[in-house]
Amino acid sequence: MSDATANTVAAEGEAQFGDYVALLKPRVMSLVVFTALVGLLVAPVSVPPMIGFTAILFIAIGAGASGALNMWYDADIDRVMKRTAKRPVPSGKIEPGEALGLGLALSVLSVVMLGLATNLFAAGLLAFTIFFYAVIYTIWLKRLTPQNIVIGGAAGAFPPMIGWAVATGGVSIESILMFGLIFMWTPPHFWALALFMKSDYHKAKVPMLTVTHGRAETRKQILIYTALLVPVAIGAGLTSIGGPVYLTVAVVLNALFLKGAWDIWRRDEEAAEADNYLVEKRVFRFSLFYLFLHFGALAVEAGLRSAGMGGW
């Protein structure tokens, strides 16, 4: 049998270019692009546009590579869950080995290119982020602890820090606070979703807080993490990246988010089922705006500063 015949036999459901793009989790990549770009823009050192563009592109490709590694390792649980069963690996369009190969190749490419385009510190931070998401989160802790969302959130929090490192070559209180903003935001954001989305994580034997510790405990944890998020978000406004615009936005958004988390905590399942999880859905939708508007306000402050206004 020639190669051509073998390939004709395997024609059913063959992977197209779009399937390889899907392997890189483009929606996650878009969030990475946005937050890394803000991290780059708010830094006190300006970066030539072409170098900035290249840096953001390869940070996004690095994030995509860790997504591909995640899909390679998690193919068994993705196959079991309805939401993920159509992903390229569990649906059989892409071989697991191909996903692993693409993930590893793009990881090396993104880290090397970021190092060449910017500096070794930023490249090292990107390499650590990929390692953290693929190995620490996906392979090690995701299936082990119900705090998996908190750990996964740390991986998603690194991009603005990398963007900052691209410009400055280091870490500072500002970049740590941008990291903290996404890190502390992820648990209440995701657990609000987990309360109203009846997912099948238990079928895949992934320990989710709603299943392992119950829904009342999840409501309490949402309030705790939101309360811890408030000083981080407002604190960022008092540093060199903040200013009156950011601080106003942060105070209003955090008051609203805290009120939402309080409302979630005070409800029980009976009340939530009676109005079809209205409060939980509202808080989840609000959390999306919350993060977007915080980083948007930081970008606005940077724009105002470069025009001689804004900032402290």
Binding site: A4, N7, T8, A11, E14, A15, Q16, F17, G18, Y20, P48, P49, M50, I51, T54, L57, L116, A117
Partner: peptide
């Protein structure tokens, strides 16, 4: 197979062209 894999081949080709353009732009910058 050439028809079936057209999108994949075109995608890879465009990625390679984009990569060359980025390296060139980066060098100039």
């Amino acid at each position: 197979i050439h028809k079936r894999r057209f999108s994949r081949n075109l995608g890879v080709a465009l990625c390679l062209v984009a990569f060359i353009a980025i390296i060139f732009g980066l060098t100039i910058a």
